[in-house]
Computed example of a mutant assay.
Amino acid sequence: MAANDPWISHDPLGEALHFLRMNGMFYCRSEFTAPWGLALPAMPSCLMFHVVTSGRCWLELDGEPPQALQPGDFALVAHGAGHRLVHEPGADCAGLFDLPRAEVGERYEVLRHGGDGKPTQLICGAVRFEQPAARQLVALLPRSIVIEAAQLPQRQWMQDTLRFMADEAGQLRPGGETIVTRLADILVIQAIRAWIERDPAAQGGWLGALRDRQIGRALTLVHADPARDWSLATLASAAAMSRSAFAARFSALVGMPAMQYVTRLRMHTAMAELREHGRSVGALAERLGYDSEAAFSRAFKRHTGLSPGAVRRGIA
């Protein structure tokens, strides 16, 4: 891919959001009546979300005060931490996998629980991100994010989307499962965008580097083609900077030297391919630009402390 390719995004932060392609682990429509409480277990490497479509509830996450959720609110638990949804703070909870559920599709189910009191309905899900740039972005998120519909400038759009989503979840006509999951993915990205726009913590570090016109362009090129034979010279040229100025600015904004970042991105890509797709070590070595399988294996073990074969076999 040429460094002056006109198709390379001029919005590196938007490009990072583009990488937020989600692999849905599960989605469910939850129908609760007070008194009720749901305990969700830790799901490492997953982002969990909850959309309140009617009624009210509370999100409880250890170490944080309970957060009230109103109709239209959207809550993210970013790092797979165990948490609770309850009709009131401190309510007794049943475990997610201890409750009966109606399986509607391979990844979609309906969950019902509670007594004879006020109803609350939610759409919940757990998703995982495979692309390393997306994982790096998600790693920067706080433990939880609550987007209040009333505070969003896109309130009408969000409300219309939620109504459409709730209607599809309630009826699940042919193709309804696909519509619900796609809309959920869009809402997750919208919630992350809202956090980036309003939280000072999102203005520096790697996200700040993406906003930098020159360093952001270099990052976009590396994310799009990590296997290319990148060098400090080619990256500096793509950013229209001298090598010394580029190296200093990249390290200052990203927190590590440019070539270390390239290698780390390649190793994260390899880790995901080995664990989740079972790619062969030889194929990965060729794909990521290594001259031999042995050279790739040495680099992988040096950076991860694990052998590629052990990761591929699921024993590391």
Rank of each mutant, 00 (worst) to 15 (best):
V311H: 08
A191T: 15
G125F: 09
F300Y: 15
R155N: 06
L85W: 07
H223S: 11
A3T: 14
P132E: 02
A194D: 08
Q136R: 13
P100E: 12
G278A: 13
P257N: 05
P12S: 02
E109S: 15
E109M: 14
A252T: 03
A236Y: 04
M267Q: 02
A209K: 06
H113C: 02
Q203I: 01
A233N: 12
H79S: 05
L219N: 07
I186S: 11
P89Q: 02
L20M: 06
L69Q: 05
R312Q: 14
R287V: 02
E103P: 02
M1D: 11
G63V: 01
A194Y: 13
M22A: 15
D73Y: 07
V51L: 15
V311M: 10
F19P: 00
A191M: 11
T263E: 15
L40R: 09
Q121C: 15
A91G: 09
V281I: 12
V262H: 02
P119G: 10
M1P: 08
G105D: 15
T304G: 03
Q203S: 09
M48K: 12
A194R: 13
A252Q: 12
A270H: 01
M43P: 00
A91F: 03
T161H: 07
E177I: 06
P200E: 11
F164D: 10
A236H: 05
T161N: 07
T178P: 00
N4A: 12
K118W: 08
A270K: 04
M256H: 05
G115S: 05
S244C: 07
L20S: 02
V281K: 08
R313S: 10
G305R: 05
Y108S: 03
R287C: 06
S307V: 00
F32Y: 15
R217W: 04
C57F: 05
L111I: 12
F129K: 02
L13K: 03
E177D: 07
L152F: 04
T304M: 04
L306D: 06
G80T: 04
S251D: 13
S280D: 12
Q159Y: 03
L140K: 04
W157Y: 12
K301I: 01
D62H: 05
Y27N: 10
Q67K: 15
F250H: 06
A150Y: 00
P6G: 08
M158H: 14
T220P: 05
D185F: 03
C28M: 12
L152R: 14
P142H: 11
R279W: 13
L253D: 05
H79P: 02
K118E: 15
T304C: 07
G63D: 00
R163G: 13
R279L: 14
A42H: 10
A295V: 12
T263Q: 14
A283E: 14
Y108K: 03
G24N: 07
M48I: 02
L47V: 10
Q67I: 10
Y27D: 11
S144C: 13
F300L: 03
A252N: 08
A78W: 07
L219A: 03
E286G: 14
M241Q: 13
Y290S: 00
A202P: 00
S9T: 13
S297Y: 02
G90N: 04
R135E: 06
V146P: 00
C46A: 15
F26H: 11
R312M: 07
A245W: 09
S54C: 14
S237W: 10
G309M: 10
Q214W: 11
W157G: 07
I315A: 08
G37Y: 01
R155G: 06
W7H: 15
A272Q: 15
E148R: 15
D167G: 08
A258Q: 00
P100A: 14
